[in-house]
Design a protein around this nucleic acid. Structure first.
Lengths: 198, 198
DNA sequence: CGCGACGTTGATTTGCCTCAACGATTGTGG
DNA sequence: CCACAATCGTTGAGGCAAATCAACGTCGCG
């Protein structure tokens, strides 16, 4: 059995970088979140279903992807320890998601659903602040990624990826990094070959 | 003279879509924001200076851009009526900005600086919620733009731009739309030619 | 009027994709 | 435990999308 008590302290630690949590707040959080274990290759979210939870990664690695009409998949984001992952649009509006989220490793997440989260916002007003700051930081990161996408060739984007996430590239299959960068695995392989020859 | 009272109601209206503002809240906001008028081609932010304000557009149109080593500029975002614009990273951390913000039209913005905003967060806790929701929506929009950038050719990105911002393309010079999409003005012109021939 | 900014068009080059074939590794069933 | 299939990364050949370079017409503006 997966006990919430074994994992929720990770979440508290993360939140307490931004806000102060009382003992009572922590109790509220403990009963609102559920732990869930995923096996490698298991799906946390399937396209065309509603994204019912926001998920905080305690351990492991996830990938959010979109499959286009041709069946090619495109990686929107990765999530490792202490990252949140969720299709916000689906979660907030209750609409079917266009994305999938799959586990790249055996993974443990803490999940909260929309109703429980809304109650938490009422009981712990500081949560608004926590998620405000979280999304502001996400916004900054996304802005940089967009700038890279519109201003740099694939090769330079890969260089920046390695610099920005030095731990990640050992953990994630190359083809997913390629699809994250918006290039083909074949082309990424060529880039790596060139790099290694200097 | 530019009177805050003439414009701040636009901001209230925008905020009241998400939160309830008391009369007292509105007074606090009124003394914390300053109105500023910009002429076409005037800069709201210059690279290498600190972005001291978050700006809410009452009227007009702005463009946020990055100039690379070759002197080519890349458009991160536009902002028209009821949009916020700011280099968040510079604003939050007090670091010099890598971006510029320029007016594409004569423009009126409402501005708040970091100190005044922090006080507002203390006095009006619901502001955390307003900006949380604002940034969540921004996150959703940015995710879609990233997906388009990594999965679609320039032509399809332009189609989506027209669908997503039907009002904007009449208002903004083509070369800036090209740089927003991550293609050259020359290539955008070719795309438009093809489109018109059907 | 003359200059500069903008969009267009054509010619050429280049970055990146597609297709295909080939080792290396993993994992799966007999 | 081995044989086989499946997946992954690599490599090469050829093709297309988009960039670069350059010239030209149009318009707004000093």
């Amino acid at each position: 059995m997966l006990e919430i008590r074994d994992h929720i302290s990770h979440l508290f630690t993360h939140m307490e970088k931004q806000i102060i949590l009382s003992k009572k707040d922590k109790e509220e959080l403990s009963i609102s979140f559920k732990a869930r274990r995923l096996l490698k290759r298991q799906y946390l979210l399937q396209a065309d279903t509603v994204c019912a939870h926001e998920s905080f990664v305690v351990k492991g690695c996830l990938r959010m992807l979109y499959v286009d009409e041709k069946g090619i998949d495109h990686t929107l984001s990765f999530a490792v320890e202490n990252w949140w992952i969720c299709d916000l649009e689906s979660f907030l509006r209750g609409s079917p998601s266009a994305y999938n989220i799959e586990a790249l490793e055996n993974t443990i997440v803490l999940q909260v659903d929309a109703i429980a989260l809304e109650k938490l916002y009422q009981k712990i007003p500081l949560l608004d602040r926590y998620f405000r700051i979280l999304h502001q930081n996400a916004f900054i990161g996304q802005s940089k990624r967009i700038l890279n996408n519109i201003s740099l060739p694939g090769r330079a984007r890969y260089d920046i990826f390695l610099k920005t996430y030095p731990q990640l590239h050992q953990r994630i299959p190359q083809k997913y990094i390629a699809s994250f960068l918006g290039i083909t695995p074949v082309f990424l392989s060529q880039i790596r070959k060139q790099r290694s020859q200097r």
